[in-house]
Amino acid sequence: MIRAGIDIIASIAAGFYTTGRHLFVRPFTESYPEYKRPLPARSRARIILTRDPEGRERCVACYLCSGVCPVNCISMQAAEDSRGRRYAAWFRINFGRCIYCGLCEQACPTSAIQLTPDFEHIRRDLLDMVFEKQDLLVDHCGKDPDYDFYQHAGVVTGLAGKGDHISENAPVNTRTNMP
């Protein structure tokens, strides 16, 4: 009983000691506009849509990013272009809602959507925070310089036919019974 009381007082005192000591520690805070910390490339802020190494739009409008987005701030409409490529007819991110969680980037199977370190994009009008595809598209590959989804997929897109994609065999002949 007495021990317990002493323990209680000792642990409370330890708490006071810890917080009290902090008064004499230099704060860790970096004062923001005066000092801008260089951010790593993978830090998560303003979102871009990148292009493949050939300079074509990477996004295939698969709806995975919009499906995974916890705040539902991505919307788009998939469409098919003249060569049979699936792409986003329009693509919209409402940055007024985005929480920069980065789940969209994780979900993206084509490396199209990527977050960049540029967090200083604030607008006075909320509507200006709604970015359309042309605002999001950049003309580089972002963090993934090599990947080209349509070289791996099996669909015919006018760039490559059946059997022409990476790790595909030529189409089989179904009319023969030879082994």
């Binding site: 917080t19 009290g20 902090h22 008064l23 520690v25 230099r26 704060p27 860790f28 805070t29 004062s31």
Partner: peptide, 13 residues
């Protein structure tokens, strides 16, 4: 301010 310092930050400045 003090809470800031107790938490090793500056507080309003």
């Amino acid at each position: 301010k003090l809470l800031g310092r107790f938490q090793v930050r500056y507080g309003p400045n």
